[in-house]
Design a protein around this nucleic acid. Sequence first.
DNA 1: TACGTGGCTCTCTACCTAAC
DNA 2: GTTAGGTAGAGAGCCACGTA
Length: 258
Amino acid sequence: MDAAASTFSLSRFVEEVRAVAPVAGRALDVEWLPNGRTTLVFRVIEEGRRGDVTVAGPRTRALFKNATGVARAVMLQFKPGWSGPLLGVAANALTDRIVPLEDIWGRSGGDLCLDLLAAQSLPEVLDRLSHAVALRTRQTSEPASARLARRAVRLLEGDEVRVERVAERLGVTARHLRRAFTESVGIGPKDFARSVRLQRAVRRAASSKDWARIAADAGYYDQAHLIADFRELVGLTPGAFLKRAGARGGEAMAGGAP
DNA sequence: TACGTGGCTCTCTACCTAAC
DNA sequence: GTTAGGTAGAGAGCCACGTA
């Protein structure tokens, strides 16, 4: 490993690393809630004989599916705004898509997959992923729009919900912010704020069943808006979603709220 | 010339409220 | 709780301007 890669830390760019495996004899449950994040997924298929590395772009709607034949998977969820500089492709080109890394990086994407398959342990997989990403950061330059989008993300994840206000606080026009944000994060700032609100509601619902309270705490005008948003983004009512989550247990491969 | 940025304008829709 | 209507805000297309 060279000097740049050895001093490179994934934690600056990666929000969450998760290794998952299905319960023996069952398909791997995949649950992806809208959250404005791009995720790199390394899957080991057929007990290690095959594998793939894909990039799942930010989702505007939830995705539920069963992945059969997957022995285990490692997911790197990038912080919003970092997928462009690290992957070398605008985030909005990946929105609601799952793309083989080879289609983005070319041959080096395929080489990385072989490299990861040869790794003996999870720390080694992460080390090799970290090395590959470190090399890419030296090959791509980071546009100013990505930095602007990341600052906007911090405000939208805080208490600021109006795009106009966020733009004002960052010293740019709302028009410019929307353009930069969509390119760097993959969804518009308003959709991002909406997904933040949804995630908050999901987290609060884990410890409470008072929907009126949850709606208010998460930032919804009322319970009706919470339910309408849930139906549109997730395709289920909040109650049905929690029932489903409870029935699944803990083995799911989730791209949404932890 | 390419790129980053801002202004104008139009359409769509989410939000809020009131009435039923 | 449901529905309908008004309003404000968001998104997007197009164009112009400044700068390297």
